[in-house]
């Protein structure tokens, strides 16, 4: 299990690197080498590290540990084909990590990041609609049952594309450089991660690489179903590249536009959900 975790960490970092490279190429820049994010994390971990004088020490460190813990847990939930409700729970709890990162340091930039993170809480609701729709269609939230259902009835991606689109938006809103990434926009330096440097930043990079890996992996498992692991990886890469296209071509939205877009997406999925329930 630990081997899979480490594999996921490095793959996730590599995916981040590919994401940056793809965005750079689309925008006509050479971009960094794809292993740049791995080097980045290592570099940060070698750097001198302390806790800012104004920070709430325990929270400042605990949030980093929590970030690592929840995404390792999420990975194991996928690995053991557990309940996607728990996955959804962990995804929501990630919000707490974002708040905690921003608020714990006392830095105004971090605080703005945290406030924006509260504002963009609407991005979590499409996932709820996704879970609800999947539950109504497959009758279970165990990943193993969902995979079995897809083996019998074909991939959910084709059965309910709007739900897949909702989850796609959810993943998009958590990607680096995404149009929805207002919490780490450049005008507030690095947003809620501004004050986490050195080892803390390295650990956060590890956690966020796990997050990217888990979200992509979950999308493939939930909407495509049980296929060989190599094929899963290829699909994850394709998914990531499509996300990179969106991130490269869309400007970052203002916080209010972000919330509007996410609320609209939620409303559309809710309408679809009601339609599914009525038909069923």
């Amino acid at each position: 299990m630990i081997d899979f975790l480490l594999f996921a960490v490095f793959t996730g970092l590599l995916l981040h690197g590919i994401h940056r490279k793809a965005i750079a190429r689309i925008q006509g820049r050479p971009g960094p080498p794809i292993w740049q994010e791995i080097l980045h994390s290592l570099k940060f971990s070698f750097k001198e590290t302390w806790i800012p004088a104004t920070a709430s020490e325990v929270l400042f460190v605990a949030v980093v540990l929590v970030a690592l813990g929840i995404w390792s847990a999420a990975l194991f939930i996928l690995l053991l084909e557990g309940s996607i409700l728990m996955l959804f729970g962990i995804y929501m709890l990630h919000k707490i990590v974002e708040h905690g990162l921003g608020l714990s340091s006392g830095s105004p930039y971090g605080k703005f990041g945290a406030i924006r993170s509260v504002i963009s809480a609407a991005s979590e609701i499409p996932l709820f609609a996704t879970i609800g729709a999947i539950y109504f269609v497959t009758g279970s939230l165990q990943l193993s049952d969902i995979i079995a259902y897809q083996a019998a009835n074909g991939p959910l991606l084709l059965l309910m594309p709007p739900v897949a689109a909702a989850m796609y938006i959810v993943i998009l809103s958590k990607m680096h450089y995404s149009p929805f990434a207002i919490i780490e926009a450049k005008e507030i330096v690095s947003g809620n991660r501004t004050e986490h440097f050195g080892v803390w930043r390295a650990a956060l990079d590890v956690a966020f690489s796990l997050k990217t890996f888990v979200l992509l992996y979950a999308f493939v498992l939930i909407f495509i179903g049980g296929i060989p692991f190599a094929a899963v990886l290829v699909l994850m890469l394709l998914l990531l590249l499509s996300l990179s296209f969106v991130c490269a071509l869309c400007p970052m939205l203002s916080p209010y536009d972000t919330v509007t877009m996410q609320s609209l997406a939620t409303a559309l999925v809710a309408v679809y959900l009601v339609a599914v329930v009525v038909i069923a």
Partner: peptide, 23 residues
């Protein structure tokens, strides 16, 4: 899984703190 979820975060952070530059 539970054991790793609890231990792994500490491992990552402590590893970094162990080999990082001195003050």
């Amino acid at each position: 899984g539970l054991l790793i979820v609890v231990a792994f975060p500490f491992f990552v952070v402590l590893l970094g703190l162990w080999w990082n530059a001195s003050e």
